[in-house]
Amino acid sequence: MTILLQGVLDAVSIGGLFALMALGIGLIFGIMRLINFAHGELITIGGYAMVVLADAPPLATAILTLLFVILLALVMERLAFRPLRQASLPTLLIASFAVSYLLQNVLLLIFGGNTKGVNFLPSLSQPIEFSGLRITYLQTVIIVVTIVLLVAVTLFLKRTRFGIQMRAAAEDFRMAQLVGIGATAVAVTAFATSGFLASVVSLLYITQIGVILPQTGLQPALFGFVATVLGGLGSLLGAAVGGFVIGCLAVVLQIVLPLELRLFRDAFLFAILFAVLLIRPQGFIVVRWARERV
């Protein structure tokens, strides 16, 4: 029973992280029809920002990391994706792959290929124990932050004037322009929001794994992409649910797989997800308008 509960706790915290990850990716896809492969590098770069800012007070590190990653997301939009706004889906896809590769290698140029340790707020990793369950402060923070952010993003999209405009643009970008919604304003807001989500994931995820490499963001980003497909491309709720499911599944596999097979966890994970998609290729949540244009 305790083992089970422990597993649930771990799964929820990892699932939450991937839900935030997928939400950031899903937001950009919904509005720009762009799968942003470079979302992973936003997370990696947040990690390197924490390395550079290691000696600053933790609050300053956190705030500067957030700001830097958001800024970078905006620069990315301006330099690479704004000139491609009229481009076809495959072109956008390849372009974002190129941006991702570009950033990875810029990091390699600056920081080299060796693993760097990140020791942000070590006290967060202290476990709390109660009735046989171990949970770190960090896991608690992750769960709370995930819930708060999911609620905040939902409120932003449902209640604010700008959020409603973004949803309109996500459904029909051309028509949104015709009612006078500024295309650039929408794109900038989408990238800023996505960058914000990435920076939060970065702070939490990199703190948890404690090390950073130029390719660190790749794997969680890949989980995030698959999550948006699993949840139903174009649905933000679907993306969050998909991310949560994948995170949980990864933890479950980690527990149930025999030791010698654990190295193949991702292969098992993707095999399961492919099986799910074989039965339900449109994902958990079907967005009618998205199917027509994706």
Binding site: I35, L89, P90, L93, Q219, L222, F225, V226, T228, V229, L233, D266, A267, L269, F270, A271, L273, F274, L277, P281, G283, R291, V294
Partner: peptide, 16 residues
Amino acid sequence: LAGVSASIGTFAVLAA
């Protein structure tokens, strides 16, 4: 899967 989803799938296959 539709085009974009299939592309993501190919990348997942490679990673696995």
